[in-house]
Design a binder for these strands. Structure first.
Lengths: 128, 128
DNA sequence: CTTTACCTTCCCGTAAGGGGATGGTTTATG
DNA sequence: CATAAACCATCCCCTTACGGGAAGGTAAAG
């Protein structure tokens, strides 16, 4: 399969696939006589893994570690669990920060007249 | 006040202050005969405004717009309200994405044995 | 007088690709 | 069969919002 086919089959962009290769996340693809990248089932499965892990918010660096664990048939599930737990903690932290911002914004929005008058509690708050 | 004093007074870093100046978010600070930046109450108030808006998650570009509205005594509160509402919507979208990730991770974490055995539902899911 | 603590500018690095230029390849169409 | 549309390749710049650190001038303290 060419890179474009892989892209539409997996939902990722060709740019992303090349990028993952360029940073060493996946091995360089084999090339056809036309110099096009040629993907087999194994490589596609790996790219799917990468895509799925990225969609769960893991960084490219983390995905590299997850891939290594995946390839190591004798890894302890503990290791994977630890990575996932740490990642979830980071996500929870982000959510908490965003929730704080949201709450503040909500309060300000409710106090703002939202009309033609210049008086604006939102700006007043920012300037406090 | 020197930049360091402003930094510790406002909680932002000197680097950030210089950065905001470099991108035109705030006007270039006046300079003393030693070429140090010299800040007055007005400039400090503006930097506080910037800092507060940034802490609510507004981008630097958005802060520039908010500053412009703030300086314009005749702006309609609607305009500020619209910006804040759009920003809150974006934050809610981010939260929703993170919550989806979190839920998936939570499910996977519960299914993982988290012990020395190699069997790992988390990796299995990523590879599905 | 010297050390220490500031300040200045300048340049590099970050995360994860997207956009777009330039040029070769393949395939579809008239 | 010729050519145009659709792919593919590499390469380089752009994005966000600063942080790190180097090189060198200035100021306050011991």
């Amino acid at each position: 399969m060419n890179i474009g086919e892989v892209a539409s089959a997996t939902g990722m962009s060709a740019k992303s696939i090349r990028y993952y290769e360029s940073v060493g996340l996946v091995a360089p693809a084999a090339r056809g006589q036309n110099n096009y990248r040629a993907y087999g089932a194994r490589e596609i499965a790996e790219l799917r893994f990468v895509h799925r892990a990225r969609s769960l918010g893991f960084s490219v660096k983390d995905v590299a570690d997850l891939l290594a664990l995946w390839r190591d048939r004798s890894r302890a599930s503990q290791q994977v669990h630890a990575m996932a737990a740490a990642h979830m903690a980071a996500i929870e932290q982000k959510i908490a920060n965003l929730e704080t911002m949201k709450a503040t914004l909500q309060t300000l929005l409710l106090r703002c007249h939202n009309d033609d008058r210049p008086d604006c509690p939102i700006l007043d708050d920012l300037a406090r």
